[in-house]
Design a protein around this nucleic acid. Sequence first.
DNA 1: TCTTATCCGACTATTTTACTAAGGTATATA
DNA 2: TATATACCTTAGTAAAATAGTCGGATAAGA
Lengths: 158, 158
Amino acid sequence: MRLTTKGRYAVTAMLDLALHEGRGPISLADISTRQKISLSYLEQLFAKLRRNDLVKSVRGPGGGYQLSRSKDSIYVVEVIDAVNESVDATGCNSNGDCLDGDACLTHHLWCDLSSQIHQFLSGISLEDLVARKDVQEVSKRQDRAHQLLNTIEMEAVV
Amino acid sequence: MRLTTKGRYAVTAMLDLALHEGRGPISLADISTRQKISLSYLEQLFAKLRRNDLVKSVRGPGGGYQLSRSKDSIYVVEVIDAVNESVDATGCNSNGDCLDGDACLTHHLWCDLSSQIHQFLSGISLEDLVARKDVQEVSKRQDRAHQLLNTIEMEAVV
DNA sequence: TCTTATCCGACTATTTTACTAAGGTATATA
DNA sequence: TATATACCTTAGTAAAATAGTCGGATAAGA
């Protein structure tokens, strides 16, 4: 089992989409600056998210990504699964063949832990996260910083 | 956060100790054959377990390792911690400085997940595991195989 | 003193992570 | 139709971690 920046980035990016829903597609460039995630890395992650039907894309200028379903029906566990970060804590993908085809001493313990984690993460939707106060506060801060950056850019052009 | 064979090996080895308690120290060679874990790798893991006061060692022939406390006061989470496998799911060690010194959008989610996992694993002692039916069955199977191996070895010597 | 076993440090192959680079493709707008 | 935007794809890569191996030192019982 691993839970690293890959899965965290994916969930963060999906939450960013959920937070900025309703104003048309969101570009990866926007997510990249807001969440400080490398653009090309985001592209790789979104390729997987798209293949797993979690987002849909719009090409061309003004394009970007949108959630493919309503945010109350997308669960954190799906996002993590989509980028290949398994939530399985066993060494045998829960097959029970961890020690020469048989279960190892601690097989059931890791099974229990896995279902524990799975249950937790499959109980939290993007909607749930959007509704959280701490998320809203962080998001507000990020939006302010983002707008400020845009303003400076515009002035530079002029 | 990661939970790989390192942590699983450590817990498995500690459980092996707990299961064979009472007949003096258990050698790593025994654990190695029973649990199919490389002896040198076990040595590395037990160095850490010893430094964390989870086991005590007896050198020389007939020596080996014993639990340093009673098995009902050693919890799975301690064993995993001892071999440096963090149960923390955040990217900032729960410091909240994941994004330029501030919390990232999903910081609190990973905090919640971490405490969820921590709570689960700190609620399970070696005693609890020893008492489990599935553990006892696997252990019996392993002991039979182990004794058979010893018998064959003795005959080879003769 | 020989054997058994813990101790200890250094070394290594393999895998994964978290990227970067370098292109190509589709489409809205001027 | 030109062009800029933004998605899409593949390939490569530095750094870190994993899962070991190897060689030898130390301690204690037979």
